[in-house]
């Protein structure tokens, strides 16, 4: 892949519980801000949904609004995972763009 992924993800298992921490690089534009030079409203551009899968089965499905901060951070936990399992995170924004990244549980 020539382009760097927009996602950074880490998953760590401890006593059967996997903690996932992810950072997504996205501007999360609300559609309320104005361009200071032109005075025009900057159109909304934000992530609408985030899905996380553990070994191919969904463990988290999130619906987001514009009030999630720029370059979103997300952390959550799930049971029944162990080192070596795969965790995959994908997102889709309101313009139809998307990205995903898979990692191994440590």
């Amino acid at each position: 892949m020539a382009k760097k992924s927009s996602i950074k993800i880490r998953a760590k298992a401890k006593n059967g519980v996997v903690t996932v921490k992810a950072l997504i690089s996205h501007k999360m534009e609300t559609g309320l801000r104005k361009d200071k030079k032109t005075g025009k409203v900057i159109p909304a551009h934000f992530i609408e949904e985030v899905v996380c899968e553990h070994n191919g089965a969904p463990v988290l499905e999130a619906e987001w609004g514009v009030a999630i901060s720029k370059n979103p951070y997300l952390s959550f936990k799930f049971k029944g995972g162990k080192a070596g399992d795969t965790v995959k995170l994908s997102w889709k924004d309101n313009t139809g763009k998307s990205d995903s990244l898979e990692t191994k549980v440590k």
Binding site: V59, L60, W64, I68, S69, L74, F76, F78
Partner: peptide
């Protein structure tokens, strides 16, 4: 702000900004 749907194995824990 957001809704997180937890599937089966997920614990009731969410951290974000």
């Amino acid at each position: 702000i957001a809704k997180f749907n937890l599937k089966g194995k997920s614990e009731a824990f969410i951290s974000t900004r």
